[in-house]
């Protein structure tokens, strides 16, 4: 499996993605329980200024904001109440890796 690339290009609905596993301090909006998990793009919303910079009064770069859909079974494994339930969250582009196409579902 190739190294996942950061998603710089616009991501289409249904694209398989993985949330990065970084652990930076600060006002980060990518929840820890979803880091390293794989899901699909539910919709692209719009570009927003990066809250990780905005929260500290720093010049903030715009990043595309996506809604990513995860299967409960992919997030909680055997502990999921019902593996086919869904969790959807807003994730900024700089937290999203595109999955290798040959391995995408």
């Amino acid at each position: 499996m190739g190294t996942p690339a950061l998603a710089n290009e616009p991501l289409a609905v249904g694209t398989s993605v993985r949330i990065r596993t970084l652990m930076p301090p600060g006002h980060v909006r990518a929840p820890v329980y979803l880091r390293g998990k794989t899901g699909t793009i539910e919709r692209a919303i719009a570009p927003f200024k990066n809250p990780e910079q905005l929260a500290y009064g720093l010049p903030a770069k715009e990043h595309m904001l996506y809604r990513v859909r995860f299967r409960a079974g992919d997030v909680w494994d055997k502990n999921a109440e019902n593996p086919d339930d869904m969790i959807e969250a807003e994730i900024y582009a700089h937290w999203i890796e595109k999955m290798d196409q040959s391995h995408a579902a």
Partner: peptide
């Protein structure tokens, strides 16, 4: 019922 899907929406950012 189990046949119904639940969509949990985590309001993590701007929406």
């Amino acid at each position: 019922p189990d046949r119904m899907r639940i969509r949990v929406h985590d309001s993590t950012a701007d929406m």
